[in-house]
Amino acid sequence: MKWITREHPKIDRIACPWLIRRFIDKEAEIIYVPAEQVLSKAAALNAIPFDVPDVEYSHHKDLCTFDYFISKHQLKDPALLKMAPIIRGADTDRHDLSAQAAGLWAISAGLAYNFKNDEELLEKGMLIYDALYSWASHLYGEKHIQTPAEHLLMEIYNKFLKHKVPGWAKELKEIIQDQLDTNLSVSLGDVSKELDINPAYLSREFSKYFDNLSFGDYIRKKRIDKAIELLQTSYSLTEIAYLTGFSDQSHFTRIFKKHTGKNPSDYRKELKKGKKDTNR
């Protein structure tokens, strides 16, 4: 049976092929192609697509594709159930789900850096997941930490470092700011592709790290913030609408008033009045 997914795998797209070959289809052929070609190639090759949007084998709610494979094929192996939150945490940047998630991410990212050929990367990745399965089967209860100092370090990690903002959120803030500064359009699909993160997951997790706002609401807020800065310049309202990425001045005015309660002209007058009062 043929299985097809996006190229440049790291976590889910290595873990799932491992699961397929070890527990579902030992002779499975795994095919990696550019993201935009997955569905067309799947149809042409009679292959089953996975870990892409809008297919059965993909992320569902808070679960990653590896979780779905386990559920779909009713795999009850206790070791797989122990591995699942580790893989989910590494794949979705939720390192709080498992103490081993950050380590799996680090190893997987390093492996992907060292091996640019996807087939070779999968071959090496199979060894990683074989090892993880052995650990989950036979060594799950063992601890490496021995000294009180090491225990103290782990307590500090769990208390102060465990719930830090994930790297993708920091990178995404920079991407959004760069796009807004250059007046380029910003779409969820584009940034998810640039970050190599599942769009559904990004949409779901976005508000946790961006002022409790959805992706669209956050972009609009940033555009309004930029517009307020530009209202203090000599740019016309039409120019400001263009510079902040709105389709036209009427669209800009409508969204601006929705966010601030005032239309841009009145807001500009108040800004000027405030400056005069300050200078007196």
Rank of each mutant, 00 (worst) to 15 (best):
E36S: 08
D225L: 13
I14Y: 02
Y133W: 08
Q249A: 13
I11R: 00
K170D: 14
V165A: 13
A42F: 00
A136H: 05
H8G: 12
T238L: 12
S207N: 10
S137L: 12
W168L: 00
Y32M: 09
E270S: 12
A90P: 00
A149T: 11
A112R: 04
W105Q: 08
E29K: 11
Y209S: 02
V33I: 11
W18C: 05
L237V: 07
F66W: 06
D67E: 12
Q232P: 03
I31F: 08
R280K: 15
I255V: 15
F50R: 00
D217F: 09
H59M: 01
L127W: 08
I70L: 03
D93N: 12
D277P: 08
K272R: 13
D225Y: 07
N198H: 13
Y235V: 01
G141P: 02
Y68M: 14
G216L: 14
W3V: 00
L153V: 11
A44C: 14
R204C: 03
T5Q: 05
R220I: 14
Q74K: 14
F115Q: 10
T5A: 03
Y209V: 00
K193L: 15
A241Q: 07
S192C: 04
L195D: 03
H95D: 07
K61Y: 11
D62E: 15
L63E: 15
L63C: 10
T238R: 14
V186C: 09
Y133C: 06
H251F: 08
Y235R: 02
S207F: 07
F23M: 04
H163Y: 14
A227Q: 01
L81G: 11
D12N: 06
Y68S: 12
K10P: 05
D217L: 15
R6A: 07
K159C: 07
L111Q: 06
Q249S: 11
D91S: 02
G216T: 15
F252H: 05
K170F: 13
I176S: 04
P53D: 00
L81V: 12
M1G: 10
E29F: 06
K170Y: 13
I175P: 02
Y218F: 15
I176D: 04
L161D: 05
I11D: 01
G245V: 04
Q146M: 10
A42L: 04
D178E: 15
F50P: 00
L243M: 10
L213F: 02
A200N: 09
A200Q: 10
L180K: 05
E229K: 13
P9Y: 03
G245D: 09
G245N: 05
S134M: 13
F66N: 03
S71W: 12
A42E: 01
Q232D: 09
I255C: 13
R22L: 03
Y209C: 01
I224K: 04
C16M: 02
S58L: 06
P34D: 06
L271Y: 02
D266R: 14
Q37K: 15
V33G: 07
E239K: 13
F69L: 06
H95T: 05
K61I: 12
A136C: 06
Y57R: 02
A84I: 07
L104Y: 03
E27H: 05
I86T: 03
K2D: 08
I30F: 10
L180H: 08
V38W: 00
L230E: 03
Y68A: 09
Y129R: 03
L237S: 03
L271E: 10
V33T: 14
S58F: 01
S187R: 07
E142L: 14
T92V: 02
D211E: 15
R6I: 04
Y235N: 03
G89I: 00
